[in-house]
Design a protein around this nucleic acid. Structure first.
Length: 329
DNA sequence: AAGAATCCCAACCGCAAGTTG
DNA sequence: GCAACTTGCGGTTGGGATTCT
């Protein structure tokens, strides 16, 4: 581009805005509109670059900005929008009147993201985390715990209790990894034996919305569909097929649930028989309370109709949201 | 009470898309 | 079609505010 960044321009002020500067900027824009941002600072008598003025106006001085804490409704909207749009803060902001992209981004980074991580969800995919590195802190903690248990002369009861806790936690961790691997398989377009995806639409030369959605490794809008358009002017009913993940409250894994689709995800034996990847029911702790459905069910049933006009199956079902939001309280 | 740690957010930076001549 | 320029966006950061020890 060849143009120096505005910070390089001679002697222009940077950093926090003073009330006087705010007043000048507000007065000018109210009288003349912002026009060319680049020309504005001179015209308004400000020793700032246009970019800085624009940012100050759009993120702070604009009269329609709503300040203060985000309401639970707004939080829920952000989560839902983020699961669809990803880090498209400006697109998300368009659905939250009075909120700026910067504000939403900050709120996400300081609150929502942490909450999701704490709950074991990948904040980018809104799925249970799949990376072993994510579990590293817990594993390290468990290792330390074990060392402590072995080294310290605790009474038998507390030591065994600790060990039991550690084993419980390790099992949970292991289970989560299994679930996540299965989820990855289930949502992979190549796993046709697992996820029987109708191919009629794809054969028409257009990737089916469903299959593109099912292949989401991060929130993505199906090809040819503008996520923004998708959302504009309609109530939030954006729903991702793979979201059936959260639809049912029954635990995915249990010894009595072997005919679930999930078991099919666990891999087939050489002769086609199902090799249960799952541990026996009694060897596993109960899953977390939030609802998780059959992983292999990602694109099944009515949610993905033959037209590829999937309009159902919230990735975050309402009930899940309720529970999630109650975590915030 | 004081220092350290953490949180929070306004503002900056760099990049890319869009616009104009 | 191209280059110069403008605008918008998302990631990052500095430092004040708050909480913890």
């Amino acid at each position: 581009m060849g143009r120096p960044p505005c910070s390089d321009e001679n002697g222009l002020k940077k950093g926090p805005w003073t009330p006087e500067e705010d007043q000048k900027l507000t007065d000018y824009i109210e009288k003349h509109g912002h026009g060319s941002w680049r020309a504005l600072p001179k015209l308004a008598g400000l020793n700032r670059c246009g970019k800085s003025c624009r940012l100050r106006w759009t993120n702070y001085l604009r009269p329609d900005i709503k300040r203060g804490k985000f309401t639970p409704d707004e939080e829920q909207n952000i989560l839902q929008l983020h699961s669809v749009l990803g880090n498209k803060w400006s697109a998300i902001a368009k659905h939250l009147p009075g909120r700026t992209d910067n504000e939403i981004k900050n709120f996400w980074n300081t609150h929502l993201k942490k909450k999701l991580i704490q709950m074991g969800f990948d904040p980018m995919t809104h799925r249970p985390r799949t990376d072993f590195f994510a579990a590293l802190p817990q594993l390290i903690a468990l290792a330390n715990l074990r060392q402590l248990v072995e080294q310290r002369p605790w009474d038998n009861q507390s030591a065994s209790q600790l060990q039991a806790d550690a084993v419980q936690a390790a099992k949970l961790e292991y289970l989560q990894c299994l679930l996540q691997s299965a989820a990855a398989i289930a949502t992979s377009p190549s796993s046709s034996s697992i996820n029987t995806i109708p191919t009629d639409l794809e054969q028409n030369g257009r990737p089916s919305q469903m299959s593109s959605l099912c292949s989401l490794s991060s929130p993505r809008i199906p090809e040819g569909i503008n996520g923004q358009d998708l959302l504009m002017g309609q109530p939030l009913d954006i729903q991702i097929p793979s979201s059936s993940f959260f639809e049912h409250k029954q635990p995915i894994i249990s010894g009595t649930n072997q005919n679930s689709d999930y078991s099919a995800n666990s891999g087939e034996g050489e002769n086609g028989t199902q090799k249960p990847l799952l541990l026996p029911e009694d060897s596993l702790p109960p899953l977390a309370d939030f609802p998780i459905s059959n992983l292999g069910d990602a694109c099944s049933t009515s949610s993905c109709d033959a037209e590829g006009t999937s309009t159902h199956l919230p990735f975050w079902s309402d009930s899940f949201y309720d529970e999630f939001m109650s975590e915030f309280a």
